[in-house]
Nucleic acid binder design. Structure first.
Lengths: 215, 215
DNA sequence: TAGATTGTTAATCGATTAACAATC
DNA sequence: TAGATTGTTAATCGATTAACAATC
């Protein structure tokens, strides 16, 4: 099991977890693949197929124990372990993410921020110490992180990302609309607002929906 | 042609356009499917297959004229026409989007903002007049929009979205991590930060990349 | 036990890739 | 003309759906 979950399966994992969380908060204890499928808008067959990539978490005639399954899913996604994060670019979007995302809730500690703005460097934003981007190598050397959130300007994106990869940052969460050319060992997840808006516009103009690709 | 482009094809359209824009800014005039493929990381076959859903824009032995093709793509996506946008929720993320996205550049006019915060209502944020969410129906009735950007709190998301659909908003760009249950005629594009972070974490922990699903 | 529901194998469907005739 | 490259048809590959034996 596990060897190679398709990207489609991986993209659905967070949906499964979220749906289990909701059920749990309603006090539900068990759930069937059919119920999960209805809640996230897929088929029972696909739900079972997805889970089966990683193992067997259900029981015939019963379904899935919600606590058990959500523990397993968290483990599969790796969000049961703590992660250290730095935010590179503390402008509007960077700051909004710091405010808005409940990083601590899911075990992500934001341990440093970087910016080019002298009026920010040395200060704290949302409790996060801000350093100069010039000091990235040094700060991250003393204080390794798993993930860098890339929220710099589009013009700086490629160069900064390259630098991050070079100093050994394993994963980059890219909010710039830029395609980053990084060594293949660097894990990248892109959130591209512009592409998303254009796709929305396409479906608006062709007025037929398609309910996106997550993100 | 056109009838039914797959969601995969539609998701690639913005990539094609962006790549053409870059070539154009370098003064390049023509391009082959092979070159496009290399630039966006796919195959020449797929590029031609994608275009062929909508028509024939190239010439044998020559390739594609960049100006012509990008005009066609803009038309296909509908971004050659002006669009009217409202932003619902002017907190951190909403405000960051207003600052950061070059809406006007692509023909999107942000004509109104809505919030629950009394200290914002009646003011302007980034040049956009802010109204009370209570006045959504009235304001949008006098001033129809094509797209609402949903950047309200997660707890308000479902209800506000329902209301927007009810007053006839054709498309919602959803930045809340909530799954919106909307009538199927409402076009939705989701940007789900949490899902994206979890998928990133998955690939980080399984250290093998997959270079996302756009978004 | 009877009913429900899993995990998995097989069938179908759709998307990507390969190949090539047409032709600029 | 010879070389390049399209648009499209056919072949392959992969993902989703259906079916069902196993069993709680």
């Amino acid at each position: 099991m596990n060897r190679n979950a398709s990207i489609h399966t991986v993209n659905r994992l967070p949906k499964y977890l979220q749906c289990l969380n909701e059920l749990k908060s309603k006090g539900v204890e068990r759930v069937s693949s059919t119920e999960i499928a209805e809640l996230i808008g897929t088929t029972a067959s696909q739900v079972r197929q997805d889970f089966s990539v990683f193992g067997s978490y259900g029981a015939q005639g019963y379904g899935y124990n919600i606590d058990l399954l959500s523990t397993e899913l968290r483990q599969i996604m790796g969000i049961d372990r703590p992660h250290r994060v730095a935010i590179v670019g503390v402008g509007g979007i960077g700051r909004a993410l710091l405010e808005h995302m409940e990083f601590e809730k899911y075990g992500y500690s934001v341990v440093a921020g970087f910016d080019v703005d002298d009026t920010l460097i040395g200060k704290r934003v949302n409790g996060v110490q801000i350093y100069s981007v010039k000091d990235i190598a040094q700060v991250l050397d003393e204080n390794a992180v798993d993930i860098c959130i890339l929220t710099v300007s589009q013009s700086a994106a490629k160069e900064v990302a390259q630098h991050l990869a070079q100093v050994g940052v394993p994963a980059i969460w890219n909010f710039t609309n830029e395609k980053l050319d990084l060594p293949k060992e660097t894990v990248v997840q892109n959130i591209n607002f512009q592409d998303s808006l254009f796709v929305l516009t396409y479906y608006l103009e062709h007025n037929s929906n398609a309910e996106e690709t997550s993100a």
